[in-house]
Amino acid sequence: MSTSSRSLALALALGLGLWVSRSEAQQVVDAFPAGLSAPTRDALRRLADSAQAAGLPAQVIVAKAAEGMLKGADEARIIRAARSLLVELMIARDVLPHGASLGMLTAAASAVHAGVSPQTVSRLIRSGESVRAGEVDLSISLIALTDLVASKVPAESAANAVEQLLRRRAPEAELTAFRAAVAHDIASGESPQAALDSRTKALVRTLDSRADLMGRRP
């Protein structure tokens, strides 16, 4: 191979690489809301690139930016929210089992965002896995946990309650009713901790009685 041929091959390869990365970056930029300024789009594109480089989907960053635009947030706040989301997704990925779905990943990231510690999320996942809970059950539990924390229930107490219910394989409908009942009690003036305790106790009793009847108490 002559020197000129080698130089040409190298130039072509470099050009191809640059073209692919540039068109990829351009596509992410195009996906961001049109109303954003160029520097903000650039900052968001870098976050999306970081997400992709970490094996995380870039569209969640795009969606967060679109949500911020719709809600009238200023651009600095949009960037802050997108950056925070990226960090939470990375934390969630680290505590979840390998190959977790995007749904479970975002559910765990949302729990972290709500104030649940990564260690608590990890403990909940391990607890669920010990009773062979599927990914859907784990995702539902994470969503219920996030909802409770968003309703001002202390994160650790909420996690303990959800863990108890997960270990008893509480059906989704009962978990949904439980969550709604706690929220209702809080709205009625009960303290979040008291509402959680009384509703958890009641549901645990129900689940244990049912398990006793079926001869498979945990």
């Binding site: 949500e67 911020g68 809600k71 706040r77 925070s84 729990a111 219920a144 996030t146 968003a150």
Partner: peptide
């Protein structure tokens, strides 16, 4: 359920 993704002051559902 609430999503707690209230970065912009208005919480979402999930």
């Amino acid at each position: 359920p609430q999503a707690a993704d209230d970065d912009f002051g208005q919480p979402n559902s999930v």
